[in-house]
Amino acid sequence: MLGRNSKLKEAGITLTFVGPILVLYVFFFILPLGGSLLYSFTDWDGLQTTFKWIGFSNYIELFRHSDSFKNAFVFTLQFSVVNIVLVNAAGLLLALLVDSKLKSRFFLRTVFFSPNVISLIVVGFLWKFFFSSVLYELGTKTGLSFLTYSFLGNPDTILYPIAGVSLWQSVGLAMVIYLAGLQGIPDELKEAMNIDGAGRWTLLWKLTIPLLLPAFISNLFLTTTNSFKVFDLILALTGGGPAGSSESLAINIYREAFTANEYGSGTARSIVFCLFIVIVMLIQFRVMQRKEGK
């Protein structure tokens, strides 16, 4: 009897702490997700109080006839691959730089991380002004014609300025995570390898990189989710243009639901998007588990 009361007391304490969070999670995540799944099988326009059940029509239309969704999917995939590689590579290089014996390393850490605290909407507008006005004025006054190039107006190259701005804004966080991993490597291991005659490159590839695997996993998950969900940066920088060439999946879903008032189709797109992200994250999780030998 005493053991039962103890278990009930422990369950009550656990529920006291977990309960509010669980209620919020159900209210703000589970219920909206369930509602989205329901509406994806309807023709609801977001305005009428009634709607018609149309089954899988939204999904069939999505995969057979929606060129805008397919183009947005391709662009999002391209941007994600480029962004993940650039942010992780640059973040590691900057972490190695600011972990060195440079006198200015603390100042450099602040400089590199500062853009990360700026809102993506603000970042987008700042760089839009820089590309469209500042560079153009510099080009006309200095005679450097390449500066007058329409960086945000060419559908064939629009991916690169967006990836560059994203790199500038997000590399600081990746640097901090890698820096924490670097500072967690015991000095004794470095000294032992130095005594054995290991050079700088051997130390990097045989010791530093393998021990940075947890930091790499964290950065990989962060950059993957942020890249696939990119919305406000592109909305402020290009608005999805020119001619929809930089429209991400998140922007495509937003316009379908809130601009075209096709909530049924918009929620179907969001469900497909959500499943795609879940599949990608599960694949990453399994691969990283194998890398860690679990």
Rank of each mutant, 00 (worst) to 15 (best):
A11D: 11
T16V: 10
T16A: 13
P20H: 07
I21R: 03
V23D: 04
L24H: 07
L24D: 11
F29L: 15
F29D: 13
I30R: 08
S36Q: 12
L37Q: 06
T49P: 01
F51M: 09
F51N: 03
F56M: 15
S57G: 09
I60M: 06
D67K: 13
F69E: 08
F69D: 10
V74C: 00
V74W: 06
F75M: 09
L77F: 13
S80C: 05
V82R: 03
V82D: 04
N83V: 08
A90T: 07
L97E: 09
L97G: 06
V98M: 11
L102C: 07
K103N: 10
R105C: 07
R109F: 02
T110Q: 11
V111D: 12
L120Y: 03
G124M: 00
F129E: 01
F146L: 11
F151H: 01
T157R: 12
Y160S: 06
A163E: 03
A163F: 02
L167Y: 05
V171I: 13
Y178V: 01
G181Q: 01
G181W: 00
E188R: 12
L189A: 07
M193D: 05
I195G: 00
A198K: 05
A198V: 13
L203T: 14
F216T: 15
S218N: 13
S218M: 15
L220C: 13
F221P: 11
F221S: 14
F221E: 12
F221M: 15
G241K: 03
S245W: 03
E247I: 02
G264R: 02
G266V: 04
A268D: 07
F276M: 15
I279K: 05
V280R: 04
M281E: 08
L282M: 15
E292T: 14
E292H: 11
K294Y: 12
